[in-house]
Amino acid sequence: MEPVEINAGDYYLRAFRNDDRVSDLRALVEAYADPATRRYLYALAPSSEAAAEMYVQFMTMGWEKNYRWSWAVCDAVTAEVTAGVILHNLDHRLGSAEVSCWTHPAHRGKGVLPTALNAVLGWAFGGAGLHRIVYKHAVENPSSQRVAEKCGFTLEGRLRDNEIIDDQRVDELQWSRLATDPAPEQLP
């Protein structure tokens, strides 16, 4: 599948890139250098431009093989990367996926992620025909919980000892949103 670009008002969502015109490498290294981002998304954490290049290739391959769809969330005016949204564990037969997302530390608290994720969900349910999207996060991550709530996800339950963070087993909350759920009202 070719990468899908999404206009989300103040933000423009496009595939992660590193080419002769656009490079997201520095923004990826900066975002993942943040302790909170690394803490919760350590498996994907590019700590150098070489690792960020591999990250971009990994995301690009997901589009090419149609098993992972990812977006760099960019400011519509400056084109600066402000966040990232990834739909992974795609199951085309069931019409399901799981979402992972992050916000660049310089852009937290500005509503970037709820705006971008709601735009992705609109496309995923409408354009891509998905039916169910799961969102999981560590119980002690209130920022992720606020994103889930603002994006209209329904809390399904607590997954005990489902993740390892800081070398400790932690519980996660699992949320889902269905194509048949009403669109969320934007919360402040």
Rank of each mutant, 00 (worst) to 15 (best):
M1E: 08
E5V: 05
D10V: 00
Y11T: 07
L13T: 13
F16Q: 02
D19L: 05
D20T: 05
R26Y: 01
A27Y: 02
A27H: 07
V29S: 06
E30I: 01
E30D: 14
A31Y: 00
A36R: 10
R38I: 00
Y40E: 03
Y40A: 04
L41P: 07
L44A: 15
S47E: 15
S47D: 15
A52R: 12
M59T: 06
M61W: 08
G62R: 05
Y67H: 14
R68I: 03
R68M: 10
S70N: 12
W71C: 11
W71T: 07
V73P: 14
A76D: 12
V77F: 07
G84V: 00
I86K: 08
H88V: 01
R93Q: 14
L94G: 15
L94T: 10
G95H: 07
S100E: 13
C101D: 09
A106E: 10
H107L: 01
G109Q: 01
G109V: 06
L117D: 08
V120Q: 09
L121A: 04
G122F: 00
A124E: 11
G126E: 15
G126L: 08
G127Q: 08
H131M: 08
H131D: 11
I133Q: 09
V139T: 12
R146L: 06
V147D: 04
A148W: 00
K150S: 14
C151G: 08
G152L: 07
G152T: 03
G152D: 05
F153I: 03
F153N: 07
R160E: 13
D161L: 09
D161V: 02
I164V: 13
Q174H: 03
P182W: 00
A183S: 14
E185Q: 13
Q186P: 11
